[in-house]
Design a protein around this nucleic acid. Structure first.
Length: 116
DNA sequence: AACATGACGCGTC
DNA sequence: GGACGCGCCATGT
């Protein structure tokens, strides 16, 4: 077997980087798109591990209910809500309307944009 | 090798 | 809605 070109974390980062401004996705969906079904938890871990200089749009990743995953009273929560609002996403009570904002990428385009 | 971590998801009550 | 249990598993120590 060949050594994989990218680690699981790197693949997750690649997918997150594709979420367009004004749209959101979820940990579970990102895991699926990265070829890691059932590993939503690893997406959160990978985001925590990511270098700031990657400039990932981490704020566009919410939980499966469209809610910000951080506790309401944390700095991270406030920052994520601010970043989302800056790009026009309506956040109410730490939650966004998934039917309105969920990123629904075209598969063919997605495949072309990913390196793995 | 064993163990804890992790910004999760889903079903059930 | 909320609380709880369980599945998930790469990574770091």
């Amino acid at each position: 077997m060949h050594k994989p070109s990218f680690s699981n974390a790197e693949r997750i980062w690649q997918v997150v980087a594709l979420i367009p401004p004004g749209k959101i996705s979820s940990y579970g969906v990102i895991a699926d798109l990265a070829g890691l079904p059932g590993r939503a938890r690893y997406v959160s871990r990978a985001l925590k591990l990511a270098n700031d200089e990657l400039n990932l749009p981490w704020h566009r990743v919410l939980n499966s209910q469209g809610r910000i995953a951080f506790d309401k009273q944390t700095e991270a929560f406030a920052e994520q809500m601010m970043l989302l609002r800056l790009e026009g996403v309506d956040v109410k009570n730490g939650r966004v309307d998934k039917t309105q904002y969920m990123w629904q990428p075209d598969m063919a385009t997605l495949v072309m944009q990913l390196s793995f």
